[in-house]
C-alpha cells in the first residue's frame, strides 16, 4: 500500500514533460517579447536623439521640404509624400487586378484555374526584390521615360514596380476572404433569380469587403516598407515630387542610401534614425488599421 501511495503522490513522468514543455514555450515567448520591445525602445531612443540632443524641431522634420542633414536641414516631407505616393498608387493599381484574379480563382475556375494561378502567385512572392528592381530599371524606367518624358525615375516607376510586388499579397488575402463567404449565400442568391455576376457583386463582394480591405492594407504596409526595388527606380533625389515622373526619394530609399555614409552619433546619422522611427510608427498604424477593420467586420 505504501508503495502505491508513494507513487501517486510523486509527480509522474508525464507531469514532468508537461512542465518542461510549458517552460520552453514561455521562455521562447519571453525572448521574442524582449526582442520586440528592445527594437522598439532602441529605434525610439535613436529616432528621438535628433530632437533631444541636436535640438531640431519635430515640426521642421515633418513639414519642411529641404533635406540636407549635414547643413542642419532636416525637412522630411519629400520622403513622406513620396512614400505615401508610391504606396497609395501601387495599391490603387493592384487592387482591381487582385480582386479580378481572386474572383477568377474562387468563383469562375476554382479547380484548374486556381491551381495554376496559385503557382504563379507563389512564384511572384518568391522573386527577390532586387530582381524586381532590376527589371524596373531595365524596362519600366525607360518605358516611362519614352511615354512621359523626363528621366523616367520617380513615383510612377516606383508604383509600377511595387504593384507587381504587392499584387500577390493582396490577391492571396482576397482569395482567403472570398473563400470565407458561406457557400449558402451563392445558392440563396441564385435561387432568387440572380445571375452569377449579380451574385458576385451584390452578395459575395459585399460580404467579403472587410477581408478585402484588410488585404489592401497589408499590401500597402508591404509597399510602404519596401526599400531595395523602390530605391533602384525612384531617382533618389530628396526633393518634393513635382509630378509622378520627377525623381524623388522614399523614407526607405533615403535610409538605405544614406546609412553607410554617416557617422554614428552625428546629426546626419540621427536624422536617418528619425526616418526609421517614422517608418516604424507607420507600420504600427497599418497594423492598427487592420485590427480595426477586422473588429468592425466581426460586429457586422
Amino acid at each position: 500500500m505504501d508503495e502505491i501511495k508513494d507513487r501517486l503522490l510523486k509527480p509522474s513522468k508525464a507531469t514532468h514533460e508537461d512542465q518542461r514543455g510549458k517552460f520552453i514555450s514561455y521562455l521562447s515567448i519571453g525572448l521574442i517579447a524582449v526582442l520586440v520591445i528592445s527594437i522598439l525602445v532602441f529605434i525610439t531612443i535613436h529616432g528621438l536623439a535628433m530632437f533631444t540632443q541636436n535640438g531640431m524641431k519635430i515640426s521642421d522634420f515633418l513639414f519642411k521640404t529641404d533635406w540636407n542633414p549635414g547643413k542642419k536641414l532636416i525637412g522630411a516631407l519629400p520622403m513622406i509624400v513620396t512614400s505615401f505616393g508610391v504606396t497609395l498608387l501601387s495599391a490603387l493599381i493592384a487592387t482591381p487586378f487582385a480582386i479580378a484574379v481572386a474572383l477568377f480563382m474562387t468563383e469562375f475556375a476554382p479547380k484548374r484555374g486556381a491551381k495554376f494561378l496559385q503557382v504563379i502567385i507563389e512564384l511572384l512572392v518568391g522573386i527577390p526584390s532586387v530582381i524586381y528592381g532590376l527589371i524596373g530599371l531595365a524596362i519600366v524606367v525607360p518605358a516611362v521615360r519614352t511615354i512621359y518624358g523626363g528621366t523616367g525615375f520617380g513615383i510612377l516607376a516606383g508604383a509600377i514596380v511595387l504593384f507587381v510586388m504587392v499584387l500577390p499579397t493582396i490577391t492571396s488575402l482576397t482569395v482567403d476572404s472570398l473563400k470565407a463567404v458561406p457557400r449558402h449565400y451563392r445558392q440563396a442568391s441564385l435561387a432568387l433569380g440572380a445571375t452569377r455576376w449579380q451574385t458576385i457583386y451584390k452578395v459575395i463582394l459585399r460580404a467579403a469587403t472587410p477581408g478585402i480591405l484588410t488585404a489592401v492594407v497589408f499590401g500597402m504596409a508591404r509597399a510602404f516598407g519596401e526599400a531595395l526595388a523602390v530605391q533602384m527606380v525612384i531617382g533618389n533625389a530628396a526633393m518634393l515630387p513635382q509630378n509622378l515622373t520627377s525623381p524623388s526619394a522614399t523614407l526607405t530609399s533615403q535610409l538605405t542610401m544614406g546609412i553607410g555614409n554617416t557617422i554614428m552619433g552625428t546629426l546626419p546619422n540621427n536624422a536617418l534614425w528619425s526616418l526609421a522611427l517614422l517608418l516604424l510608427i507607420m507600420s504600427l498604424v497599418f497594423n492598427l488599421v487592420v485590427k480595426l477593420i477586422a473588429r468592425k467586420g466581426r460586429i457586422k
Binding site: P182, H184, Y185, Q187, G193
Partner: peptide, 14 residues
C-alpha cells in the same frame, strides 16, 4: 428561378 423560388434548410440572410 424567379418563377420557382426556394427556401433552404438553414436561414440564409445576406
Amino acid at each position: 428561378r424567379r418563377k420557382v423560388g426556394m427556401v433552404f434548410q438553414q436561414p440564409i440572410p445576406f
